[in-house]
């Protein structure tokens, strides 16, 4: 019995060690192995959100659709391979990329300096989001209209402080966004302040047909798509930079924005103009 157990233990240890070695080997890949692997496999595996309408969500048949899914489709088409989507969460998207479980991540991720050390976020950024408000149509027109008025917000959200210090709004803070939005519906405040991408998702959901997002978005934070860190300066990272450039130049992202009912973002317009300026007339 004892020797049997030892054998089992040895087997398990070997399997674990093997697993660790396999993981390490993955991380030590030379720069272009991932790109080559995608072509060999004939399939591109992209991590997208499945719970963030309208960027990545499920249609009623269970298929993942959305703006970022369309972008992933464009990439697969450009490579001439099939597309496989893996739903990711904010908590595991960077790990999946590091492990090599996904080749590319387009998952509503804000571009932050500390994230650039972990995954290969390619330039230029494909989108931005910032502070804005949701209000009944015609109630407020610009940020200064908020002065002295009650504005609903989520407790602890950093948007609250900004509208108070900059525009003198009176914040009515709630535990969660559902409660804050309910208060807006009940007329307890003139607007609900939050991230514009989240407000757009609400507008797209059809629950807020009498509402609008009237302000010019402030404090834009760029969104980044990412490839594995050691692929960033290789073919794969440069390929993604190129495809993003073309998305901006041709207005593809603006077109997708429209398709998914997302309000036009100033950033995409600016980028289109900037890149078009370099084109011969």
């Amino acid at each position: 019995m004892k020797s049997k157990k030892t054998a089992i233990l040895a087997g398990v240890t070997a399997a674990l060690a093997f697993g660790v070695v396999a993981t390490l080997a993955d991380q030590a890949y030379a720069k272009n192995d991932r790109f080559k692997k995608v072509l060999d496999r004939g399939e591109l595996i992209v991590g997208v959100k499945a719970d963030y309408k309208p960027w990545g969500f499920r249609d009623s048949s269970g298929k993942i659709v959305g703006m970022e899914v369309d972008m992933a489709n464009d990439v697969a088409k450009a490579l001439g391979v099939k597309l496989k989507l893996i739903p990711v969460q904010s908590s595991n998207r960077m790990q999946f990329l590091q492990q090599g479980k996904i080749d590319l991540m387009i998952a509503t991720m804000s571009d932050k300096a500390n994230r650039r050390k972990v995954v290969g976020i390619t330039d230029p950024n494909y989108y931005t989001s910032g502070t804005n408000v949701l209000a009944k149509k015609g109630v407020v027109k610009n940020w200064d209209d908020l002065k002295g008025k009650p504005v609903c917000g989520k407790q602890g959200a950093f948007y609250n402080k900004q509208v108070t210090s900059r525009y003198g709004a009176k914040i009515v803070a709630f535990v969660g966004n559902a409660e804050a939005k309910q208060a807006l519906r009940d007329g307890k405040c003139v607007a609900w302040v939050y991230d514009d991408s989240s407000i757009m998702a609400d507008l797209a959901s059809g629950q807020y047909n009498d509402y609008e997002m009237p302000m010019k978005t402030e404090d834009d934070t760029p969104w980044g798509l990412a490839v594995p860190l050691d692929e960033k300066d290789g073919i794969w990272g440069n390929f993604m930079s190129g495809i993003t450039y073309n998305w901006h130049r041709t207005g593809r992202l603006i077109e997708l924005e429209k398709k998914w009912g997302i309000q036009p973002t100033a950033y995409l317009q600016t980028m289109k103009k900037k890149f078009e300026a370099y084109q011969p007339k």
Partner: peptide, 15 residues
Amino acid sequence: VSYTAQAMNAEGDRP
């Protein structure tokens, strides 16, 4: 459970 959360999101996360 993850599918339930995704289904609710697709319906606009209504409380």
